[in-house]
Computed example of a mutant assay.
Amino acid sequence: MNTLPRLRRWISAAVAPLSRPPALPVRAATGTEAVRAEGVTVRRGGRALLNGVDLTVRAGELLALVGPNGAGKSTLLAALSGDVAGGPARGEADEGAVLLFDRPLPEWTPPQLALRRAVLPQEASVSFPFSVAELVAMGRAPWAGLCSPGADDAAVAAAMDGTGVAHLAGRRFSTLSGGERARVMLARVLAQDTQVLMLDEPTAALDIGHQELVLSIARQISEDGGAVIVVLHDLGLAAAYAHRVAILSGGRIAAQGAPADVFTESLLGNVYQHEVEVLPHPRTGVPLVVPLR
Rank of each mutant, 00 (worst) to 15 (best):
E201C: 05
R219M: 07
V230F: 04
A218S: 15
L232Y: 04
G236H: 10
V245T: 12
L168T: 08
A239V: 12
R172I: 10
R181D: 11
R188P: 05
G226I: 02
E201M: 06
S174I: 11
A187T: 12
A204T: 15
G209S: 07
E212H: 15
L186M: 09
A227C: 08
V245N: 00
V189C: 00
S174M: 12
I208M: 15
V214K: 01
L206H: 05
Q192R: 02
V184K: 06
E180I: 07
G236S: 12
P202H: 06
A240D: 11
A191Q: 03
A227E: 09
A242M: 08
D234E: 14
V189E: 00
V184R: 04
H243Q: 14
L168R: 03
S216Y: 05
S216W: 07
A246M: 04
L197H: 00
L199N: 05
A205R: 13
A240P: 04
V245Q: 02
L232T: 12
A182I: 06
A239C: 09
G209W: 02
D224P: 10
A169F: 02
L248D: 02
R219W: 03
I217G: 03
R181E: 11
G178I: 07
R181K: 15
R219N: 06
I221V: 14
A182W: 01
H210W: 05
I208Q: 14
Q211A: 08
G179D: 13
V231C: 06
R181Q: 15
A240V: 06
G226R: 01
H233Y: 09
L237D: 07
D207F: 00
A169R: 13
L206W: 04
A166K: 14
R219S: 08
V214D: 03
L190V: 07
P202I: 10
A204L: 14
V196M: 10
Q192T: 00
H243V: 05
G225A: 04
S177G: 09
H243D: 15
L197K: 00
G209N: 14
M198P: 12
A218K: 11
R244C: 01
V231T: 08
G178Y: 00
L237F: 01
V165E: 06
D234A: 03
A169T: 10
L215C: 13
S174R: 14
V228K: 02
R219E: 13
R188Q: 15
D224K: 11
D193K: 10
G209L: 05
L199T: 09
G226W: 00
H167W: 08
L235Q: 08
S222Q: 12
L232V: 13
R183P: 01
R244G: 00
L232W: 04
G170R: 15
V231W: 01
L199E: 06
E223M: 11
Q220K: 13
M198C: 15
L199D: 05
E201L: 05
A242P: 05
A218M: 13
V230N: 08
A238D: 12
Q220E: 15
G225F: 05
M185P: 00
G236Y: 03
L186H: 02
S216I: 06
T203W: 00
E223H: 09
R244E: 14
